[in-house]
Design a protein around this nucleic acid. Structure first.
Lengths: 398, 398
DNA sequence: CAACTTTTGTTCGTTCCCCGGCGTAAGCAT
DNA sequence: ATGCTTACGCCGGGGAACGAACAAAAGTTG
């Protein structure tokens, strides 16, 4: 019964090859899969049966006959399993259950400051997660958990590293806690990275080089290079909020330094400018609202912030040569004004080669972007060759 | 040697798994390999025999007995095969034969302008290559060819794309020509990328995130992200020479635009400055010579160029979070002055997190850096799991 | 110095996966 | 309804790898 070759299974990597082909959602027949993979029809049949058993694929309408017996078609079925997406913000926690297609099934939000510490926040996550999952009692329904945290995270271990605004979280074993509670793998990352992965998986799957820039109370970027999240030597790649810009030369940043980009172009900086101009604006949310209602001063400030950010981004574009820049966060999503400022500078000042086919767009995510990004990260893991193979083996032995 | 396990060792085929383990040069016994791979002793023995036959490993002194029969040890043997490394510069061509350990065996250089066109230049490469290879008549000695070109290259196809200084080379099928002549795979890339790969493979094998910056007649960077060369959406990632900098606001660049970094900080710009200051300096080589002999004006100019470049690099550091920045090219290698300027700015102005453990060093390559980089690129290919397996299969069938 | 111990190296039968051929099932065309 | 065409399911054969058993080569001990 048991493969005597133990855990080292060369054929194992090919085990889920069929599934990886079907992941695109296109229905295919067994013969098509055989020619695509080069495997024998009999082998394909066995694999397809296994996937059907697990519920990762489903039969769909037969293909039109070409003269002989019509062939059955099979298609990716993402409805039988799900993942948990968790977004921890500075003042709130947001959790959602998505199926493996990426459809958000239910979600729930609560106001809880991250400064209450990991035990309090994660307890809510666990309780609420279990409540939401109660509606999906299928055995093995949950396949993974994804978490976005508002600070630097060592992705390999899932632990926050010296987070500035998360007292008590430093090096806390977030995946340990959640894996214990839910019994599945837990992936943790910085919220910007999580949104970047989500945006890419959901809207730009064919793009391998992308920059996601979030403008809210700070400014951060997620770098996707060669189709993979780029984290850098210490996991702080994309931390562009504290790059020195001449506009901020005499402005003190919350990080304690002078000259940081986010000291002049992030939400609080814009709020401050507008407040001093006499507007009744305190928070980044107020800024977004003012921009949305077309306040001329706010619009001007958003566009100017866009220009300032773009001056930094021109360098990023030359260095990375991305196909797309996505702007996200409440300020960027409040109309096209910040976007317009970014485009203005990048398309005029950026190098012609790198900008000729560069797209600069707004995030398509909504207020649920972070949760859906976290889910997307979890989904990516759950649908990976490794996870699917584990599931096949598990099911076979049971 | 290179540690192949540094990043993703695509477990595609376990056939050459044993070889990939031995690539680090450490001698190992069959039993050690068996426990490392999880394979049976008999399987390991068969694989080892195959590798011995090919000549990719060699037996070394037996291990000390632990009471029983002493075990034989085997070690990577890079002396039985070799690669060709080719560096095409603006005014010269340089070719060398290296063995698979990376030792440069012979090399040869000629003054030939790249503007003579691909047929002329590559004819010399082929003739000279055959001459050099005549001393290594072992069948199947040559395993790959690596080429560095002074312009943008579409790495997938190996064709130059709109190169500014290579008339007649646009979209020329360089790998086709050389593969036909030498009968092995040919890899082509931009010279900066080639040097970056070489520097990484030879001197920073364990570093996965690195920036290589070349300062000569232009300024370019090679980006290694997550252990892989990053090329970007159009293959022009790292093209930092034409980033807008305020220092160059009113300076015309050779590219036709105003404000480019390399218009003020590359070799020709420094030469021009010094020439205007009354020095007898015309070319970047003159600049390097002046710096080397300690000319105070030249040293000052080099340091100032370093500062200007570093202002751009601070953004790159925040975005990529590299572990190392390597500065190469004739200007950077003419003493530590440019390096000092770069360090001065990055360590004072860069974000503390990203610079705290960042190393900024000079390239260790010599004037043969480009050839050795091209060889290194070829070697990386020749030692990849795929190539080794092909070789095993080939030898078995013969 | 010979027999024993210990570990390695080698051979060979077994197991399992996968391939490919053959018979059967299921629609189309006449 | 009959034949044709294509797809599905079963089954024997080949190859890869495993592991047990045996042979070899030291060191160890009486």
């Amino acid at each position: 019964m048991i493969d005597p070759r133990g855990q080292e299974t060369l054929s194992g990597s090919a085990q889920s090859e069929i599934f990886q082909i079907l992941r695109d959602g296109v229905p295919r027949t067994r013969s098509e899969l055989a020619t695509l993979t080069g495997l024998a029809r009999s082998t394909v049949a066995a694999r397809v049966d296994a996937l059907l058993n697990i519920g990762l694929i489903r039969p769909v309408a037969d293909a039109a006959s070409t003269g002989g017996r019509p062939s059955r078609q099979f298609q990716f079925d993402g409805t039988q399993h799900g993942v948990l997406g968790v977004d921890i913000g500075a003042t709130h926690a947001h959790i959602g259950v998505s199926d493996l297609q990426g459809t958000l099934l239910v979600d729930s939000e609560v106001s809880i400051p991250v400064s209450d510490g990991p035990e309090a926040v994660l307890s809510w996550v666990i309780d609420e997660g279990r409540k939401l999952l109660a509606d999906y009692p299928a055995p093995d329904f949950l396949r993974a958990v994804g978490v976005g945290l508002p600070g630097p995270v060592e992705h390999r271990t899932g632990r926050p590293i010296d987070p500035p605004i998360m007292p008590g979280w430093d090096r806390y074993d977030v995946p340990g806690k959640l894996t214990e509670a839910f019994g599945v793998a837990t992936l943790v990352d910085n919220d910007v990275n999580v949104m970047a992965v989500g945006e890419r998986n959901d809207h730009w799957p064919e793009v391998n080089d992308m920059l996601f820039v979030k403008v809210s109370s700070g400014i951060g970027a997620g770098v996707i290079a060669g189709g993979r999240m780029h984290r850098g030597a210490q996991g702080i790649a994309g931390d562009i909020g504290h790059i020195w810009v001449p506009e901020a030369e005499n402005v003190l940043c919350r990080c304690g330094a002078m000259g940081c980009l986010e000291a002049v172009a992030a939400g609080p900086a814009i709020a401050n400018t507008l407040h001093e101009a006499g507007l009744d604006i305190e928070t980044p949310q107020d800024v977004a609202a003012a921009i949305m209602r077309g306040d001329i001063e706010a619009v001007r400030a958003a566009r100017e912030a866009g220009r300032t950010i773009a001056r930094v981004l021109t360098t990023c574009v030359s260095l990375i040569n991305p196909a797309v820049i996505v702007l996200g966060g409440p300020i960027a999503n409040a109309g096209d004004h910040l976007l317009a400022g970014v485009r203005e500078i990048i398309y005029t000042r950026g190098s012609p080669l790198a900008t000729s086919s560069l797209q600069i767009v707004r995030s398509r995510g909504t207020d649920k972007a972070a949760v859906s990004g976290a889910s997307s990260m979890a989904r990516q893991h759950a649908l990976s060759a490794e996870s699917v193979e584990d599931l096949i083996v598990e099911t076979l032995s049971a």
